[in-house]
Design a protein around this nucleic acid. Structure first.
Lengths: 280, 280
DNA sequence: CATCAAATAGAATTAAAATTCTAATTCTAG
DNA sequence: CTAGAATTAGAATTTTAATTCTATTTGATG
């Protein structure tokens, strides 16, 4: 009895844990239970909000199967399992559209939170999107060029400058020779002196494309330096002159664009290049 | 009868409409119903997920009051009203944690894709976490200081430098006087000359805290310049000397940390400050 | 291919939750 | 301060949902 009790007490996992457990166990489950497992993983919201009857119908099983499923996972009944899905639903972000609404109408209790939510959402969506938009082959080829480069020149102005400087930080940590082009004292052109086809230039720019960036990247390309561009459109001048180019589009919120997605691409690019270099 | 029917059919409003209707009607409602109305507006998630009993207990009324409340709004019973709250809960923005899982699962052998997924996941999780960790009051107070500042000094080295330079970009776009401290030619101290309590310094640093950053921020604090810190722990030296400080912890992947969450905070901070300044 | 164990479907049962109803209370108007 | 209407609390009832049980089917093993 004590054992039973402690068993039950111990098995109040959070949603993530439960999810992992379901995925892990699905293989060894009988047919119908596996069917429920799959449904549960794919439609957590249904589990949270539906009734045993409605969920069973949607999953194509009998209501009792759901109870058996829950019991197979160590719960007393389906309701106990469901409560975990419900808790998760509550713990999601506060609905920021809601809160904007009440901000406008009633007391401005948390103006910062709304802004934060807006920028967060825009950034996260941008990051998720690159997984779909990014060309894997271009990416791998770009990393290969960087891996083989003698010196990696880094170019980015305005909003792109933080990304360029972050790349400088990354290549510093990875111990790969690089140079951040700052165009200080308008010496941009001379910063490329000595560069050749054995080097590479990573040029970053987004609309409206900074003329200085385009100019210097073009100059490098004409010198024979392979250019890798990170930019936001096929029509970008940086796309044309590049040996390889990567498309990264950041979503807008209140007229500002983050760099979250660009940073993810930069990190992946730098680490893959380092890996390729280490491999030979 | 036909009238009844069309009444019922017409009253299947979406959550927003319902919310407005409740707020509008609250004034003319009897005591207990008004009490429920307030609870419903403040705790929509409870309404969505609770039972008549549990909600009644939390709102401090009898279960039957909830039914009367629903009927007063033109619903047949409480369950009908509740279904609207549940629908809303489902329609919230997608659960990014869930989507991340599927990202990881779908890219088994693509090296670039895996890296990208890893960094994306770390960044998104970091962004999601700040909503819990970030102190709304500190945030608002920090924005207020920035709004009132004459000149905004920006300080960040190593990994924090991209964030500082991004803030410079933001304040440039927002037309707020600022200065990015670069410590060029080791002239860090003199870059603060002329600064006073009327200005502010935004100092950004993460473990291992760059000594130069701590040093300059401390010097500024000693001059009486209010310091706003963005850092990753209570034990950070920047937390101690700051007038206000914001905790941002970025998640690690393969030994690298993104700046996605930091950028979100920076964007929200800068725009809120600009808004506060515009308001007077 | 027969036998046994495991799993399942669907009905039966139990439990829980929503709704209705009535007596009591609280307001309101005269 | 009283009468009447409106509102409420809480018990009683109805409805719905969750769980259990059993006959049947499926699947594995000798």
């Amino acid at each position: 009895m004590m054992d039973d009790h402690s068993e039950t007490a111990a098995s109040a996992p959070d949603y993530e844990t439960l999810r992992e457990r379901i995925i892990a166990g699905r293989g060894g489950m009988p047919k119908r239970l596996a069917q429920v497992a799959e449904f549960a993983v794919d439609h957590p919201d249904e589990i949270a909000l539906g009734t045993v009857g409605s969920i069973a119908a949607q999953a194509g099983v009998q209501p009792s199967t759901l109870v058996r499923f829950a019991q197979a996972l160590g719960f007393q009944g389906f309701s106990e399992l469901q409560s975990i899905y419900r808790r998760k639903l509550q713990q999601r972000w506060p609905d920021y559209q809601d809160r904007l609404h009440s901000l406008r109408a009633t007391a401005p209790d948390d103006p910062g939170g709304n802004l934060l939510a807006g920028f967060s959402e825009a950034t996260i969506r941008s990051i998720l999107r690159i997984r779909e938009a990014l060309d894997g082959e271009q990416f791998a080829a770009a990393a290969q060029i960087i891996a083989k480069a003698d010196t990696i020149y880094l170019l980015g102005n305005r909003r792109a400058f933080p990304a360029a400087s972050y790349l400088a930080y990354l290549f510093g940590k990875l111990d790969m020779r690089h140079r951040l082009l700052t165009n200080m004292a308008h010496m941009g052109a001379s910063e490329l002196s000595g560069s050749s086809a054995r080097d590479t230039l990573i040029a970053i720019s987004f609309t409206p494309y900074t003329p200085a960036t385009v100019e210097i990247a073009t100059a490098a390309a004409e010198r024979g330096v392979p250019v890798i561009s990170i930019t936001d459109s096929t029509f970008s001048p940086l796309a044309h002159i590049a040996r390889r180019w990567l498309e990264v589009v950041e979503e807008d919120y209140l007229g500002f664009r983050s760099l979250g997605a660009t940073f993810c691409v930069c990190m992946a690019l730098a680490t893959l290049a380092a890996e390729l270099r280490a491999e030979g």
